[in-house]
């Protein structure tokens, strides 16, 4: 009976004392996930991997409607934090350096002119291949 009472009492441990609250500022990371159409990955699931354990998620969460998600990495774990955003089997992963070689902002995508230039060069490659193999012999 004593044991049961003790167990029941634990979750609601309340102390009749004054409360002290400390604060300290920390560095948070905000990510924004968008599809290559520019639309946000609204409510995409976020999986965060700490540098010391790349196989087990350190934390999971969900983006807001605009594809944004904010988290505070553990400052005692410097290195590259991997953040994956996925929805319906689509998504991507970004590698964020924390501590040491930190950068203020970064991304994984390309700008529209870059994409246009790359597409044009690849298509020209295919057209060149077609022309090469369709040339008349002799």
């Amino acid at each position: 009976m004593i044991i049961i009472l003790f167990t029941l009492g634990l979750p609601a441990a309340v102390f009749g004392h004054g409360v002290e609250i400390d604060y300290q500022t920390t560095k948070a990371i905000e990510i924004t996930a968008t599809y290559d159409t520019g639309d946000p990955v609204s409510e995409g699931q976020v999986i965060i991997y700490a540098p010391d354990n790349p196989s087990t998620p350190w934390a999971t969460g969900k983006c807001d409607e605009k594809g944004r998600f904010t988290f505070t990495p553990d400052p005692s774990k410097p290195g590259t934090w991997d953040v994956q955003v996925r929805k319906a089997g689509h998504g991507g992963m970004i590698h964020i350096p924390v501590g040491g070689d930190e950068v203020a902002a970064g991304g994984t995508g390309y700008t529209t002119p870059q994409i246009a230039l790359m597409t044009a060069s690849v298509i020209w490659g295919f057209i060149g291949t077609a022309l090469f193999f369709s040339r008349r012999k002799g």
């Binding site: 597409t119 690849v122 298509i123 295919f126 057209i127 291949t129 077609a130 022309l131 193999f133 369709s134």
Partner: peptide
């Protein structure tokens, strides 16, 4: 076998563009 390559090459380009 080389005869079909020009057609295949052009349609590969179309396949690439289609995803945009």
């Amino acid at each position: 076998p080389r005869e079909g390559i020009p057609k295949a090459s052009l349609l590969t380009a179309a396949f690439l563009v289609a995803s945009w």
